[in-house]
Design a protein around this nucleic acid. Structure first.
Lengths: 259, 259
DNA sequence: ATGGGCGTTGCATTATTTGCAATGACCCGG
DNA sequence: CCGGGTCATTGCAAATAATGCAACGCCCAT
């Protein structure tokens, strides 16, 4: 769409392969040296390109600073919210979004069930870390050692007969969750409430948040809730894609992954 | 320099602060909406910009990938990293590695403290150049004239009572650092945080990078931190030796980067 | 229904970029 | 010490490519 900018930007991946001098850049761009020079100069002024002592060009540190700043200003909640609403519209149940912070797991967003029987939870409040599906997902992503360390320090309140009984069981559960890429809470917190959840990952593959769908037995059985798993996982993956900034689509605003 | 490219690149730092829609971008660029649209489209095609569901723009995944490659191309970092980790293992505190680029000093690597109280910093972001130990080390190596010239141009924010107050004091400090071969920041940035640092030199003796150990008062006193100085200097020297030894590939042509 | 906001497109104008050729700096070999 | 070669850099005229305008369509809120 813009030839000049297009050429300038093409220099970046080129330099990503290693430093290059003016001639090399011009050749590989297919333009005159003077043109390449001016493009490089502009990139240089913006710090995206750095000139080393031997006059060759390489990628500049400002690229890194930009990426760093961008990732700090990323708000999972903003990005996820429309997806949560959409998921709620499709299945009707309560949808939660949670993150890990300071050793706790906190709900940071929630879309209420449209059924009259709602489960209790509050945004900003720590979740039951030993049983909640979202907590399992967030902890399961930690390195082995840290997982065990945390598991040892936790208390294991027996909310119900299905609550995680002790550290050993929790460690096993986390390993399972980590492997299968999704988690459940089947009556572990409230006897009558079940959840299925999936992780949301950043560009580096690390789990940055987790989402879940919760519903009481009186509305859907465990088995019925589990049939939603593919939908939950697809949604979590869609959020992950957008959060990590992968531009997959170029089509209109319609949401294609609709059952 | 190229106006079109200049405008396009100005969009990036703008978006780093957070998502923005077309109108906002056009306004802050001072151009017509259609112009901004075409620039954004080009950035989008290169993956530097991502369009989220609400049609607002945000920095894209390719930028993160490029930033990754940019930092990997800094070979000082590759060489230094194991030493930084080792130093961290021995003393437990936060270890930083920084370089000078385009008049700024940037952290390019960091090994987190294993104490619960960590100091805030982010790699890729410019450091507080008038107070940070690593900044002093990198600037102290410049020729006298350049040092003074830079010192004159800087601002001297008084982060704390111990911050470098003005250019004259900074010039004196740099002379001291240059002579003694190491540097400190004793509460100059954050009242409760102290650092000791040492320079990393290339084969020609020039300072190519600087490293430092940082710790808050609540963990170790200034005096205790200073006892780490010999260890820090030895580590820096070890890195310098390896870096110098590895140097040598220049001139022949395009040497593929080792992994 | 209707108006306003926003993104998008086609087009004529003109400012911007481009490639060339010439210059200067630098290195290496004779 | 000199000369050929490479490479970065600059001024300039041609023309390509970017710009702003105005009109259109769309969606949302009133």
């Amino acid at each position: 769409m813009s030839q000049t900018v297009d050429r300038a930007l093409s220099i970046l991946p080129l330099l990503a392969q290693g430093p290059a001098d003016l001639g090399q850049v011009a050749d590989r761009l297919g333009v005159h040296k003077s043109t390449a020079l001016r493009l490089l100069r502009t990139l240089h002024e913006h710090g995206l390109v750095h000139r080393q002592q031997d006059q060759r060009y390489r990628l500049g540190a400002r690229l890194f600073a930009l990426a760093q700043e961008a990732v700090e200003n990323l708000d999972v909640r903003d990005i996820a919210h429309p997806y949560l609403k959409e998921l709620n519209a499709e299945c009707g149940h309560t949808v939660h979004l949670a993150v890990r912070e300071e050793g706790e797991v906190l709900y940071i967003d929630k879309v209420e069930s449209r059924y009259p029987v709602r489960m209790y939870s509050r945004i900003g409040k720590p979740v039951a870390i030993t049983v909640a599906a979202v907590a399992k997902l967030l902890l399961a992503d930690l390195p082995e050692g840290e997982r065990r360390e945390i598991a040892e320090k936790l208390e294991y309140p027996q909310y119900t007969a299905r609550s995680t009984p002790n550290a050993a069981a929790f460690v096993r559960e986390l390993a399972l969750v980590r492997e299968q890429g999704w988690a459940t809470d089947l009556g572990g917190h409230e006897e009558s409430i079940n959840c299925v959840g999936a992780p949301i990952r950043g560009a580096d593959g690390k789990v940055v948040a987790a989402m879940s769908v919760s519903a009481p037995n009186v509305v859907v059985t465990r088995e019925e809730l589990l049939t939603l798993l593919p939908l939950v996982r697809r949604t979590a993956e869609a959020i992950s894609r957008e959060y990590s900034g992968h531009s997959g689509d170029s089509g209109a605003g319609d949401v294609p992954h609709h059952a």
